[in-house]
Nucleic acid binder design. Structure first.
Lengths: 180, 180
DNA sequence: GAGATCATGTAACCAGTTACATGATTCA
DNA sequence: TGAATCATGTAACTGGTTACATGATCTC
């Protein structure tokens, strides 16, 4: 159910086209919830049926109409109620850990390569997040509530990347110390 | 494709029944890959069709036969090749972050409750992992390769829980400092 | 005797991914 | 003029979740 709420989260800020929502899922909200444009178009239709969003159709003449989505009052209420409900911990599915788990089947070098590559990927992501963080005024007392909320999710992204890097480095060292 | 490989990872150690594999997905491997017994029975059938696992049927007389699964040489080769292939970063879908993202729509108290609850859940998980870690000899030079591999994935679990707790605490403090 | 655990599965549904498809506009 | 981006979608498939179902054995 949370994709619906992720979409509504965006629409709580402002109206969006499906395309723009898909773009946001590549950045900002995409740092903690991934979705493709196909999923989003499908989800928006469901949300409309339930009356949680409304559509403003902007005719484009020759090509397909542009559709701007708005969060309805019903949708807003639903989102607010959802926030207060109990939530499960997200489920984890990390290829790299499956690889490490059976890493004893392959050579040390292959594992080290995987870890190095992984480390580099997370360094890249971290650099991106830290860049975005610079744009925020870092004193929480000065941030508006909605900016602070965004900033908190960004902090989560930063911490996540830092810890992946820490784990990669630790693991590389452990493998180095390993006999054989 | 990685559920298949997660299952094969287990079978690389020893033969298992579907039920036992499902149990492992609640502990050990379940710390980084979740799957239900329904998924596992379905996956085992696929793996058998592809010749990556073989089944040893143990008749139980009155009730359904017990089925013990073994990794075939083909399966083992496939797993080894998979480990060396490029892998994507796992995708993240965290309800709590969607909630925080639109947290400005609700009262500070509701957010604090969510964060506190989340923190407690991760503290519990951390305690479990740290308990398991105690059973390992902590010097990597002394661990056998397969034990070290398991230990590395466990370390990832521990770091992951620590970072969640760190983020929850940081966020609680930020909310505390917020005006309004 | 009741409840937990062992052990197997089917069916339906929902969510996520991949492939395919169209056409306008913008910029180098 | 060709590539990138804007903007919309359908279809098929795969993977994950929820609900239902059966029956044996073990332990209190």
């Amino acid at each position: 159910m949370a994709l619906a709420h992720a979409v509504m989260s965006l629409l709580a800020h402002k109206a969006y086209t499906g395309y723009e929502i898909a773009k946001e899922f590549e950045g900002s909200i995409g740092y903690f919830w991934q979705a493709t444009h196909q999923q989003i178009y499908r989800e928006l239709k469901k949300l409309e049926k339930q009356g949680w969003v409304s559509v403003e159709v902007i005719p484009q003449g020759k090509t397909l109409d542009k559709k701007v989505y708005h969060l309805t009052e019903l949708g807003r209420q639903n989102l607010i109620e959802w926030i207060d409900q109990e939530c499960e911990l997200g489920s984890i599915r990390e290829d790299i850990l499956v690889k490490i788990f059976s890493g004893y089947l392959v050579s040390k070098n292959i594992l080290l390569q995987q870890l190095e590559k992984h480390r580099r990927q997370h360094m890249k992501k971290l650099a991106v997040y830290e860049d975005i963080a610079k744009k925020f005024d870092h004193s929480p007392e000065k941030l508006l509530a909605d900016e602070l909320c965004k900033y908190m999710t960004l902090r989560r992204g930063i911490i996540c990347e830092q810890e992946w890097i820490r784990w990669c480095e630790e693991s590389i060292e452990m493998l180095g110390n390993m006999k054989g």
